[in-house]
Design a protein around this nucleic acid. Structure first.
Lengths: 228, 228
DNA sequence: GCAATTCACGTAAATATTACGCAAATAATT
DNA sequence: AATTATTTGCGTAATATTTACGTGAATTGC
């Protein structure tokens, strides 16, 4: 039995950025063509015949937003028959994380039709992109408590309180400063540097920390068990 | 820019069954056509234009194995360009769980070219189905410790030791009988019945337990937190 | 009846989590 | 230049959870 199939395959990307000022943000593009013309949407597009799904995501991100990603993971595949009003399009959604520098650059070059939006304050989105985004946020929340992906969202060196704020914003609940620090340090994938924080206001300046990749990957293999 | 796309979309299913005698098994079919003719493979096939991905999985399962599934969840989408030697085929993999009765039936009707294989003793598999299966097992292990999906693999009523054995087989490590029971019962989604276990050997017969769906779904909404 | 097996229930010790206290270092304020 | 507000660093006591294991009861097989 031969089946004539007329389904298009696309990828979409939910790219998260974070700064302590602006909180958790997501990269969106404004659509130029129908359907949903001039509506904000997740970056993405059709997969080419000879590229992998990851290559497709990275290519589309570069084309549409110019951003370079340092963490990318498959989220879920959205395949409801009516999610695109024209044809059947099944989309493999990915989520990615970028460091603040990439974030800042994009926020300044306002030329393009790509922009960051705080996840608490989103515009109407095309297609089922709202669902995809919601699911990505849930996944991020789930992931961050058992794998320290938070580091992919912070600068190379950061004061401990930055990490704490990040966790609080992503999880949407307060954490005890002292217990959080103890718990995280216990794992041993963080190194204290001798460098001190550049202050932006009052308060005792804290030491900067950095991620010890070697220990992290070792722990990841053994299986980390967070719980915050 | 129009892209002419020539990618086929398929679904594959990793269906797990469990009995305390046989352990954790997986449902496979023997391929009738090239490539990988006469090789064992996961049930699956191309998605039709107007059906959802879940409908496609359920249809293929019915067609190829006659089995009815009571738990189905998307696993991952496998999209490497060369995974099918003929054309580009991207496959959305699902994993499912079936109760022992379905399992038994299939194990007896040896007529078809579908069969159960213990996960410890698998034949060579077609395409990248070995990878898919490995990933499904990992997912099952991850899932079972923070959501009691084990119930989808057991009879309606079961002695407590059955649940314990199931967890030990899936996780591949021993669990303390008494602590396991305390931990599970604490959640309150299990009900003790007055019925006693039918013995198959020596030993004091245990009470049968059953799953309290209402409490389970309530807990699921609140967010369960296992850890065994 | 006696050994072997499995179930039921319990408890002590070790670990982990939670909820805070307080001094030190800095900026802002008076 | 003293005082206040803010934030870091380092604790510790109380509570909760996990882990390890003991003992008696109910059954089958010999």
């Amino acid at each position: 039995m031969t089946v004539l199939q007329n389904i298009k395959l696309a990828v979409d990307a939910v790219v998260f950025g974070y700064t302590s000022k602006e909180g958790l943000s997501v990269l969106l593009i404004k659509r130029k063509v129908a359907p949903f013309e001039k509506t904000w949407a997740l970056p993405g597009g059709l997969v080419r015949d000879h590229e992998s799904l990851e290559e497709a995501v990275e290519r589309e991100l570069k084309e549409e937003t110019g951003i370079s990603i340092n963490y990318l993971e498959q989220l879920y595949t959205f395949g409801q028959p009516q999610r695109d009003p024209r044809n059947r399009v099944v989309s493999v959604a990915y989520y990615g994380l970028v460091k603040p520098d990439a974030f800042e650059i994009k926020a300044n070059t306002d030329a393009s039709d790509a922009a960051w939006f705080n996840v608490e304050n989103l515009p109407p989105l095309a297609f089922d992109h709202r669902d995809i985004l919601q699911q990505a946020i849930k996944r991020l929340q789930g992931k961050i408590i058992y794998e320290p992906i938070g580091f992919e969202l912070l600068d190379k060196r950061f004061p401990f309180s930055e990490l704490e704020k990040l966790y609080q914003t992503v999880l949407g609940r307060p954490l005890d400063r002292r217990n959080f620090k103890k718990k995280i340090l216990k794992f041993g994938f963080l190194e204290e540097t001798t460098e001190k924080q550049q202050l932006e206001g009052a308060g005792r300046p804290g030491n900067l920390y950095q991620f010890n990749e070697k220990k992290y990957f070792q722990l990841k293999k053994e299986g980390i068990n967070f719980e915050l």
